[in-house]
Each structure stands twice: as C-alpha cells, then as structure tokens.
Simulated assay, not measured.
Amino acid sequence: MTGKTMAEIQTGDAAEFSKTVSETDIYLYAGITGDFNPAHINAAHAEKTFFKTRIAHGMLTAGFISTILGTLLPGPGTIYLKQELRFLAPVRIGDTITARAEVTAKMEDKNKLTLKTTCTNQDGTVVLDGEAMVSPPKAPR
C-alpha cells in the first residue's frame, strides 16, 4: 500500500483524524516516552497547577498529525521531514481532538510538501497549530 504521490496531490487537499483522549492514552504515552511529568499523571499535583487538572502531553496531541501524514495524506511511504508546533490550549482527559493537515505548498522539484497542521478540541478551540514538511512517496517505476 502506497500513499498519494506528488502528482496525485493538489494545494488545498486536506485530511482529518479525530480521537478522544483517555487516561489510558496519557499513561501509555508516559510509559513509552518516559515523560512522567506530574502535570500529566498525578491528579493531586495537577490540581495545584494553572490548569487545575491533569493534561495530555503536548506531543501526544502532535502525534495525531503524524497519523494523518503517515496514513491519510499523503499516506503510507511518506517521510516526515519537519514540524513546527505552537501549543495554544491544554488537552484534558475526555477531550475529543480533531487533527487536520492541509497542503499549502508543493515543491515538485524536491518532492516536498508543506502542510498547515492544526488540532482542535470538541468546542472548536485550536489547541495546537503549526506547519509540517513531508516527502510523499514516489510513483512506482
């Protein structure tokens, strides 16, 4: 299975992926990455923070963008080259996050795409925005 090639992609093409963030997601992410910051895993500590509750790891949320790029647009075979991120609002347990990637530029001579990337919660609040650069799969010879 191969994702879309440069010839199959147009500026403005977009894809989305949605997921409700669970407590299990946060603990699994902490275990995989080793990031046991108490803001994420310790409810008593988190109550004393600015957010008043545990929040998801920012990079867990950013991972939803990777899901789009690697499975939907361009899809399998894509090489993720660069990502700029701005974390704008917290993601809490139970939030449903919709990640979106939209092609904003094609550099056909270099086989690279630039995409606007965002993650929005169920209330329409943008929790993350940024820009990605990928190399889509090449057409089979």
Rank of each mutant, 00 (worst) to 15 (best):
M1W: 14
K4H: 14
T5L: 08
A7W: 10
E8G: 06
I9F: 10
Q10N: 15
Q10G: 11
Q10E: 15
G12M: 04
G12F: 05
D13V: 04
E16V: 09
F17D: 02
K19V: 11
K19D: 04
T20M: 07
S22H: 01
E23P: 01
E23K: 01
T24Y: 00
D25R: 01
Y27S: 01
Y27Q: 00
Y27L: 02
L28G: 00
L28H: 09
Y29R: 00
Y29H: 03
A30M: 00
G31A: 01
I32Y: 04
T33D: 05
T33Q: 04
G34S: 04
D35M: 02
N37I: 12
N37M: 08
N42C: 15
N42I: 05
A43V: 14
A44Y: 07
A44K: 15
H45R: 06
H45A: 12
A46R: 01
A46W: 05
A46L: 02
E47L: 13
K48N: 12
K48W: 06
K48I: 00
T49G: 02
K52G: 09
T53C: 07
H57Q: 02
M59Y: 02
T61M: 00
T61K: 01
G63I: 02
F64P: 00
I65R: 02
S66G: 07
S66T: 06
T67S: 13
T67P: 05
T67H: 11
T67E: 12
I68Y: 03
I68A: 09
T71D: 07
L72D: 11
L72V: 06
L73A: 11
P74A: 02
G75T: 07
G75K: 03
G77Q: 09
G77P: 08
G77I: 09
T78P: 09
T78L: 05
L81Y: 11
L81H: 10
K82Y: 15
K82E: 15
K82F: 14
Q83H: 14
Q83I: 11
Q83E: 15
Q83F: 09
E84T: 15
R86Q: 14
R86A: 13
R86I: 10
F87E: 04
L88C: 14
L88Q: 14
A89S: 10
A89K: 07
P90S: 13
R92A: 13
R92Q: 15
I93L: 10
I93A: 07
G94A: 03
D95G: 12
D95A: 09
I97K: 09
I97P: 13
I97E: 10
I97N: 11
T98I: 05
R100P: 10
A101G: 12
A101H: 08
A105C: 07
K106V: 13
M107R: 15
M107F: 15
M107W: 14
D109V: 13
N111E: 14
L115D: 05
L115N: 06
K116F: 14
T117E: 13
C119I: 05
C119T: 08
C119K: 03
T120S: 05
D123N: 14
V126R: 03
V126F: 03
V127N: 00
D129V: 03
A132Q: 11
V134W: 12
V134C: 07
S135Q: 15
S135H: 10
K138W: 05
